[in-house]
Structures are given as structure tokens and as C-alpha cells.
């Protein structure tokens, strides 16, 4: 059986975080990566590419992560958006859930957290 490839959008204003996340995810499955450095670009890329999963930072330029999640969910209610942020405050957790994010990963992430996300939302049958 051909290996399944998942399309993942990583939205973070840090090129380092995007690189690290791509490296970490690549160890778990086969991915096609899409990238965005701000909230508006993430919305635009999502609409065009309809990725299987989105990793979204919260504190990002142009449009913040919560606004981006809301707009992505308005466009596609089935969108799977995981927040990956260093600022997992009570307020941000509440806002993220309300906006429709399916998971919140506090940076610095553990590989196991990413593995759980991949299993839960992408490799569902395994």
C-alpha cells in the first residue's frame, strides 16, 4: 500500500519554529508542508490548499492566531487546527477552544505531544 502523505500548514512567525516543527513531524509520518508567517497568510493558504491539519501559533503579526482560527473555521467548519504556542494562559486556552481549535500544545513541545496529535487527527485507524 502506498504511504499516505498528509498536507500540514504550519503558521508561526518564527522561521526556526517552522523548521523545528517540520523536522519533528517528519519523524512521525509523511507530510507535505505549507508555511505561513502571519495569521492572514495562514487563512489565505488554508483556503487555497485545504490542508489536513494546521499548527497555529497565537502571537503572530497581521492577524493573531485566534482570529485566524475563527476565520479558517468559518470557511471550513471541519478544519483541524492545533494551537502550538508558548502562551498557554487560561485566557488563551478558553479563546482557542471557543474559536474551534482541537488541541493546545504548550511550547516547548515534547515529541510525544506531536505524536499524539498525529495519531489522533491524522493516522486515526492506527
Amino acid at each position: 500500500m502506498a504511504k499516505e502523505t498528509f498536507k500540514v500548514l504550519i503558521c508561526d512567525d518564527s522561521i526556526l519554529v517552522r523548521k523545528k516543527l517540520k523536522e519533528a513531524l517528519s519523524a512521525l509520518a509523511s507530510f507535505e508542508f505549507l508555511e505561513a508567517g502571519d495569521g492572514q497568510t495562514a487563512i489565505d493558504v488554508y483556503k487555497k490548499e485545504r490542508p489536513d491539519l494546521v499548527f497555529m501559533d497565537l502571537v503572530i503579526p497581521v492577524k493573531d492566531g485566534i482570529t485566524a482560527v475563527k476565520e479558517i473555521k468559518e470557511f471550513d467548519n471541519d478544519a483541524l487546527v492545533v494551537i502550538a504556542s508558548s502562551s498557554g494562559t487560561q485566557e488563551n486556552l478558553k479563546k482557542a477552544i471557543k474559536a474551534g481549535a482541537v488541541e493546545f500544545i504548550q511550547k516547548p513541545w515534547e515529541q510525544e505531544q506531536l505524536s499524539n496529535v498525529v495519531k489522533k487527527f491524522l493516522k486515526k485507524g492506527e
Binding site: 518564527s14 508558548s86 498557554g88 494562559t89 487560561q90 485566557e91 504548550q106 511550547k107
Partner: peptide, 15 residues
């Protein structure tokens, strides 16, 4: 990103 991470953890602790 180090500054962002540090400040993020600080905000979580205060939260």
C-alpha cells in the same frame, strides 16, 4: 523565539 518562549511561560505562570 527564546524571548517569546520565556515570556510565554512567564505569562502562563502569572495566569
Amino acid at each position: 523565539e527564546f524571548l517569546n518562549l520565556h515570556n510565554g511561560i512567564f505569562l502562563v505562570n502569572l495566569s
